[in-house]
Simulated assay, not measured.
Amino acid sequence: GFPAGSEFLWPFHHRYYWDLTQRIYREELDPDFDGPLEAGRPFCAPGTPVCDADYDYASRPDAVREAVSRIALTGRIGKPLVTVHGTLDVLLPISRDSDVYARMVADAGRGRLFRYYRVDGGTHVDSLFDAFPDRLRPLLPCHRAAFTALEEWIGRGVQPPPGRTIPRPASAGPEELLTSCPLAP
């Protein structure tokens, strides 16, 4: 599910996020998986007893699925919602996360309340922009633009531009990328 072209981000996310995130969420939703051990064994190899690398959700007790269902998304939104997601997110891959949620909202018939902006070159953490300014686009300016649009939508009834993929301007330098993210073409 990781986006093509994101391979250069994998080492950083492996070192700092993937294992930790898996163990934190698994511990919250299925604390009995590893018994008294809290949040599993960091960076364990498959085959290690109670290793999150071997976690099999389908084989877990019904209580685990019930815990997940209590926080599961439905797409049945009741208020305006704006989602901003980077196309190079390797913590929550866009094809497995926001793309799926956008379909859920549409399938629930709530598309009129939803705007979805896919940010070309955005990843999960803007701190990586400094390391890869030629490949990434910071999301903060896009979040600001989206939040302003949401305020206008809720407060004054001004609908935001239709959802779309916001391109990373080829000619934009770091200063422009750090300060601008137009939602409309």
Rank of each mutant, 00 (worst) to 15 (best):
F147V: 13
Q159I: 11
A4I: 03
P36T: 11
L92R: 05
D107R: 10
D134L: 13
S180Q: 15
P169G: 08
Y101H: 09
Y16C: 05
Y17K: 03
T165S: 11
Y17C: 05
R103Q: 14
G47A: 06
C44R: 00
R118L: 10
I77W: 02
F2K: 00
C44G: 02
P185R: 02
P133C: 08
G122W: 12
T74F: 12
R76M: 03
A172L: 11
P174K: 01
F8S: 00
F129S: 05
R164Y: 06
A39T: 06
R15W: 07
C142N: 01
T83N: 13
D34T: 15
Y17G: 04
A108Y: 02
E66N: 08
G47I: 05
H13R: 05
L29M: 15
L113I: 11
T123G: 10
T48H: 09
G122L: 13
A102E: 15
F2N: 12
P141Q: 02
F132N: 09
V105F: 02
E27C: 12
P167V: 06
V119G: 00
R156N: 12
R164H: 01
R96G: 08
G86W: 06
D97W: 05
Y57G: 01
R164D: 11
R26D: 07
F43V: 06
E66K: 03
G40D: 06
L177F: 05
D126K: 01
W153L: 10
R168P: 03
R115Y: 03
C51G: 02
S69F: 07
F43A: 11
Y55T: 11
Y25L: 14
A63C: 07
D56F: 09
F8E: 01
P138E: 06
R112Q: 14
E66M: 06
A45C: 04
D130P: 04
P167C: 07
L29S: 05
D107T: 09
I77F: 01
P46L: 10
L81T: 14
P11E: 10
E176L: 14
A170G: 15
L73N: 10
H14G: 12
F129V: 09
S95T: 15
A4S: 14
Q159M: 13
D52M: 06
S180D: 13
I71Q: 04
D34N: 14
G86L: 09
Y55P: 11
W10H: 14
G173W: 12
P141R: 02
R115M: 05
G109N: 01
L128A: 07
P160C: 09
T21N: 14
R168D: 07
P141E: 12
E151N: 14
F147E: 10
P93Y: 06
L37D: 10
T179P: 05
S95Q: 13
R135T: 07
D130H: 07
P49S: 04
P42N: 09
R26K: 04
P36C: 06
D107F: 05
L20I: 05
L178G: 08
Y117T: 13
L177D: 03
V68T: 05
L150N: 03
V105R: 00
G35Q: 01
A4L: 08
Y25Q: 15
S180H: 12
H14M: 09
D54K: 00
R23M: 12
R65P: 03
D126A: 04
G40Y: 03
L128R: 02
F147L: 15
A58P: 01
Y25D: 08
H143M: 12
L177M: 13
A53S: 08
E152G: 15
P133I: 13
P42A: 14
